Amino acid sequence: MSSTHSITASSPGAAFSREICFTHMDLQPLNILKADVWGEHVLKFIDFEYAGYNPRALDVANTWCEHCEMTDMKPDYDAQYPSPDQQRFFVKCYLSNLDPAGCEANKYDDAFVADFIRDVDRHSLMSHYAWLLWSVKQAVEADIEWDYYRYIGIRAKGYFWMKGKLGEAS
């Protein structure tokens, strides 16, 4: 990999992205509700069935993968995966919410954000693979009528799409 795209676990952005924290792991549109609480618009997360302790990059990666019309099983990864500008905006909002007082804002410079984003993209491979394996298990065991086999193909396509994207960066 070229030095402009290399990342090490010791880089601050990557080390931060790999920290284990409580994650939702299924932030897709059906699990995010808009609500009015005392006249203020807020977002509420529901369905914590897959929540647990994971690298924070895996949760963000899963959210970005879900951004690709997974709910309707019509992903267009090229058009729907968050663009670099959308990724930077998301990460900066994410970081500002971790430190709402802005006390540590200087530690999140452009290099930190870039390392975090590259690591999230790598973790998207794990997101696709995990949901692919989940679908295989569900296809055999689930009592719910849903096209798990189609979802296996969609997640496999997403995995190889991201693998190709990451290969372009090397």
Rank of each mutant, 00 (worst) to 15 (best):
M1A: 14
S2G: 08
T4S: 15
T4R: 14
T4K: 14
H5D: 15
H5N: 15
I7N: 09
T8L: 12
A9E: 10
P12K: 06
G13K: 04
A14D: 08
A15M: 06
A15P: 01
F16G: 02
R18A: 08
I20P: 02
C21V: 15
F22P: 07
T23K: 11
H24T: 01
M25P: 03
D26W: 05
Q28I: 12
Q28V: 14
P29N: 08
P29F: 04
N31T: 05
I32S: 02
L33I: 01
K34N: 13
A35F: 01
D36G: 12
V37L: 09
W38G: 05
W38S: 12
G39A: 03
H41D: 14
V42A: 05
V42L: 12
V42I: 13
I46Y: 07
I46C: 13
D47H: 07
D47E: 13
E49Q: 11
Y50P: 09
Y50S: 05
Y53A: 11
Y53V: 13
N54L: 12
N54A: 14
P55Q: 14
R56Q: 10
A57F: 07
A57Y: 03
L58V: 09
D59K: 00
V60G: 06
V60P: 05
A61F: 12
A61R: 03
A61M: 11
W64T: 12
W64V: 11
C65P: 05
E66C: 01
E66D: 01
E66V: 06
C68D: 00
C68M: 02
E69D: 15
D72L: 15
M73F: 14
D76W: 02
Y77H: 04
Y81K: 06
P82Y: 02
S83L: 04
S83N: 04
S83M: 04
P84W: 00
P84C: 02
Q86Y: 11
Q87K: 08
Q87Y: 06
Q87S: 08
R88P: 02
F89S: 12
F89T: 11
F90T: 00
C93Y: 12
Y94A: 02
Y94S: 01
S96T: 08
S96N: 01
L98Q: 07
A101C: 14
A101M: 12
G102V: 11
C103S: 13
C103I: 13
N106K: 13
Y108L: 07
D109E: 10
D110K: 09
D110H: 08
V113Y: 01
D115S: 02
D115E: 07
D115L: 00
V120E: 03
H123R: 10
S124W: 08
S127G: 05
H128D: 01
Y129T: 09
A130F: 13
A130S: 15
W131V: 07
W131A: 01
L132E: 05
L133E: 01
L133Q: 00
S135G: 00
S135I: 06
K137T: 10
K137V: 11
K137F: 09
Q138E: 03
Q138T: 00
A139H: 11
A139C: 09
A139S: 15
E141V: 08
A142E: 02
A142S: 13
D143L: 11
W146T: 10
D147S: 03
Y148I: 03
Y149G: 02
G153L: 06
I154H: 10
G158Y: 03
Y159H: 11
Y159C: 09
F160K: 06
F160E: 07
W161Q: 07
W161F: 13
W161I: 11
M162S: 01
K163M: 14
K163W: 10
L166I: 10
G167C: 13
A169W: 14
